[in-house]
Design a binder for these strands. Structure first.
Lengths: 183, 183
DNA sequence: TCTTAATTTAAATACCTATTTAAATAGCTT
DNA sequence: AAGCTATTTAAATAGGTATTTAAATTAAGA
């Protein structure tokens, strides 16, 4: 299977770092933290190196997004736990980290006729409303991902739970386009 | 072909004067220069003798508008390059200047019945909504210009890439009105 | 009362709209 | 008198459009 410049662009993960958090205290101690309960129940905190953003909830659960790969997710979450410990907040040892969504980009290096593709792929799994959005939306059953197909040949794969999901999604699209003689 | 007081009123041209510009520096050095990045990505700078206005971009590209003829465009652009050199900014030698749009006015010296003209010219190339705008909008295919026709007999020709475009546009209108017995 | 939707965060992709500048013309409103 | 309506055109940027996903809370609808 050729690479097609598949690149993971965003990893979203969730975990539980404590039994509960006092978000008002965290907002006070973490520079840049945003907590506006009327607007959203979570506290927003952004970090760099690696770059990521956290949604922190009173339940002790945490959502981490923006990382470029799964390793970075583990790094920033560990950093986050350390930083919380630094202000006197205990966190769970070895939290169970679950990757919930991966977004990847790819490039088939070909100009695609999206109208022909829409007809060839059939209407059940696709949406193509060029007036609304220039990409063709293709929902795959296995792996269960959504692929945005652009006329430039570029793809966006989203919904993956692992990097392999995204790669397989690209391969499914490539094969189908090849079988239809549209690639 | 009679003149009909055709007068060029505005010439818009674009060119590239450098590989890049530091707009903050230019704004600081050029009195009257306006650069508000939130509002518009270009720096606005107005000059006189000849009168014109520049939009200057970080890419080194420049839009010049407001000049009354093509010669003035070349004059003010050369002046602009000199002024930039004066504050220590190098500019390209002999920049390629492209005239992008010319607006001209003309006077058929007759009172026109715009309703009759709208019917006579046919609906495909015209728009006439007097509640919205008093001029009849007439889009010509060749030359590719747009002529605003007013009941006073005055015309505005816009979209021309050369003075000849505008003159030909006036002639097309004059002939069609003459053929329809409306002039 | 239950269900659904929205809110927020990040990211790639690509197309659209709007922004700003100048000028003539002429009708309307403030 | 000033501003709007409409027309044209380059330049570059921002925001919107769409997709996915966790988390917790609120609002609206049935």
């Amino acid at each position: 299977m050729t690479d097609y410049n598949i690149k993971i662009e965003n990893v979203v993960a969730s975990t539980k770092l404590a039994e509960e958090f006092d978000l008002t205290k965290i907002e006070a101690e973490f520079e840049g933290a945003e907590y506006n309960k009327q607007k959203f129940p979570g506290l927003v905190y952004r970090v760099s190196n690696p770059k990521a953003a956290f949604l922190v909830f009173t339940s002790g659960k945490v959502v981490c997004t923006g990382a470029k790969n799964v390793d970075d997710v583990h790094t920033v979450i560990a950093d986050m736990a350390k930083k919380l410990n630094g202000i006197g907040i205990d966190t769970l040892e070895k939290p169970d980290i679950t990757v919930q969504n991966i977004v990847a980009s790819a490039d088939l290096k070909a100009v695609l006729n999206l109208n022909a593709i829409a007809i060839g792929l059939g209407l059940e799994n696709i949406e193509y409303e060029p007036e609304q959005f220039p990409g063709l939306v293709y929902r795959i059953d296995e792996p269960k991902v959504v692929v945005l197909i652009f006329s430039s040949g570029k793809l966006v794969v989203t919904g993956g739970k692992s990097p392999e999901n995204c790669e397989e999604g690209v391969e499914v699209v490539r094969q189908q386009l090849d079988n239809m003689g549209l690639l």
